[in-house]
């Protein structure tokens, strides 16, 4: 299974991922087209700012997903085929329980629609839009089997010590 991993030492905070995410979730799927759409497309990835780092944060599709446990309306579910965490907007009632428990703060409230949106990992695309759009390859889509413990740790270390250049 492939996962989206972030090499924080490479992120410049350019927000290309945010733009690409919004566009791929638009009706027209084009930047120009989406600008003229009645319902403005929304991004599911958010470039967050820390002390001296920027970090493109999206749903991690947790194995023990707290949002699924907390969802009392049956909207949040694990997709059997892709093993990703998905939300069915027709069942979402806007109780924000998932927002209350997501440890990454990766679920967004849509006040007007009274529903939540989050990263769907572009399950209909070969490669997620944020990954394709990232000019520095900070966002990677990597086969999890090939992604050893060492590599995982390196990503975490990069995240912790990015600004020190360690």
């Amino acid at each position: 299974m492939k996962q989206v991993m972030i090499d924080v030492s490479r992120c410049l905070g350019c927000k290309s991922c945010e733009l690409a995410c919004a566009v791929v979730h638009s009706e027209s799927k084009s930047l120009i087209g989406s600008v003229f759409e009645k319902k403005k497309p929304k991004k599911r990835v958010c470039v967050e700012t820390g002390d001296k780092i920027t970090f493109p944060l999206q749903c991690r599709h947790c194995e023990d997903a707290r949002c699924i446990d907390a969802c009392m309306s049956g909207a949040m579910f694990r997709d059997a085929e892709t093993q990703t965490v998905q939300v069915n907007p027709d069942r979402c009632v806007g109780c924000w329980m998932c927002v209350m428990v997501c440890p990454f703060g990766a679920i967004s409230q849509q006040r007007e629609e009274n529903t939540v949106i989050k990263c769907d990992r572009c399950v209909n695309e070969d490669v997620p839009a944020c990954v394709q759009a990232c000019p520095t390859k900070a966002i990677k889509f990597i086969e999890i089997d090939a992604f050893s413990r060492d590599k995982r740790n390196q990503y975490l270390i990069n995240f912790r010590f990015a600004e020190e250049g360690k």
Partner: peptide
């Protein structure tokens, strides 16, 4: 600052 990045990043 309540974001994950602000609260768990370096330092």
């Amino acid at each position: 600052h309540f974001s994950y990045t602000a609260l768990t990043g370096p330092d």
